[in-house]
Amino acid sequence: MTYVSDVVALTRKDLRVELRARDTLPAMLLFVLSTLVVFHFALPAGTGATAAYGLLWVAIVFTALLGLSRAWVPEAEHGVLDGLVLAPCDRSAIWLGKTLATLAFLLAAQVVALPAFVLFFAPLDATALAGVLLADVGICAIGSLLAAMAAAGRARELLLPLLVLPLAIPLVVGGVGSAVSDDGGRFLLFLLLYDGVFAVLSWASFEYVITE
């Protein structure tokens, strides 16, 4: 039970910090909307809805990357990560708290971006939305771990996309598939599998990447 209350306290702290500093969410929102407008000009006339779905996924992945690159900034200031590592709580709770907070930011950005996508380009059905949700979970799970890893490196802003993108390819396949395939359920199942595998892996390995 203390594990759950630790995670809740850590997530709530991140939301509160973001509410005060407003560093991340407005940037994510503006980025995803600008990207959608760029896509309008990038898509030649008559390419149809299918291409738009593909580009939606490019927008989602890069918006997530933008949020993830800021994920550990509050901890980097004032050496807070040391403070968290010193605390006797389970270190995976730190990962889970960060994952949930990042997920909340990404979902908040999508609450605006997805209706805009429907308005500008093409409709999204329930399967496609479920695909977005599942892929969000996956990318935040691996992303918050990899962002902590990249934060120890020299060129952390450059490193993070390089680390995340190869791992995000299956998520894009699942996401696009759930939007365009007749049999979207298969892709949802695949995303669920991905989330399961990589969430467990990230959860179990987080404590190894944050200590020196």
């Binding site: 691996i142 771990l145 990899l146 890893m149 990249a150 120890a152 490196g153 020299r154 060129a155 952390r156 490193l159 680390l163 791992l167 990589f198 892996l201 390995s205 190894y208 990447v209 200590t211 020196e212």
Partner: peptide
């Protein structure tokens, strides 16, 4: 990008498992 040491070893190991 990470300085040589146990942390680099562990981070690389985690990535290799991924």
């Amino acid at each position: 990008s990470i300085e040589d040491g146990p942390r680099r070893a562990r981070s690389s190991a985690v990535y290799a498992l991924f």
